[in-house]
Amino acid sequence: MLNLVQTEFLKLRRRKFVWLMLLAALLMPLVAIFYFGALSTIEIMPMQFYKWTALSYTPWIILPFVLGMLCTMLMYDENQNDMLKELWIIPVSKMGYFFSKFMIVLVYSLCFMLLTAVSSILAGVLPGMIVFTNDSVSFLLIKCLEVGVLTPFAMLPVLAVAASQKGYILPVCVTIVYTFLGFILLMVNMYIHPLSSTTAIIMRNIPGVVMEEPVHLGKAFLCIGIWGIASTIWARIALSKGK
């Protein structure tokens, strides 16, 4: 398994675009500079700033979208170039192959969120918009790690779709719809969609965020777990069929 993960990382070196996608982590901190810059007369609390830069649209839309694209790219090349046959001949276990891809998504997600955290701190502190406080920075880092770990699990269905398809039109369209659905369902029922459940877990203890009812962690993890297991089974079947 470790060999597979290492191979996947070595393959990533050839894909410059994957690294370029990390730049999306800077989007919300940059937007925040302009947004809060326009409110220069009001004192900005660090937590309020970080909530905007790292804990709102980034986990709701930007990170799921980027991870969906990454899942598609990771699966697409081997499918298109018919390299899977050679991998099965070695033999590489189908689940080992699937989880090695998942490990890449997990590590990438962590790097993305850490970059978001660092750029949020720099975007707030360097222009003098907020004060650097240990409490807020440690809270931000913990929350970013939470987002970084949970979101890849919520994206397992997209990875399974990418594994079951030869092209990338369907997986990328599924990514858009899946992300949009997760974002909208957040306001309706948090325990149906894995991305909404992830957001519920993250939002449970953010100061200033008022939820209609307390977050039920068990239900949220159950939702992510059920979708994750179902996706893994589906990926296993799809890979076994050789599609």
Binding site: G167, I169, L170, C173, V177, F180, L181, L185
Partner: peptide
């Protein structure tokens, strides 16, 4: 090409998702 059907699927999903949001 399958892309037309995928676009139609996306449009239907959008209408469904917004309908779900309307239940809020």
């Amino acid at each position: 090409s399958k892309i037309l059907w995928i676009a139609v699927f996306s449009a239907i999903m959008v209408t469904f998702i917004v309908f779900m949001q309307g239940q809020f």
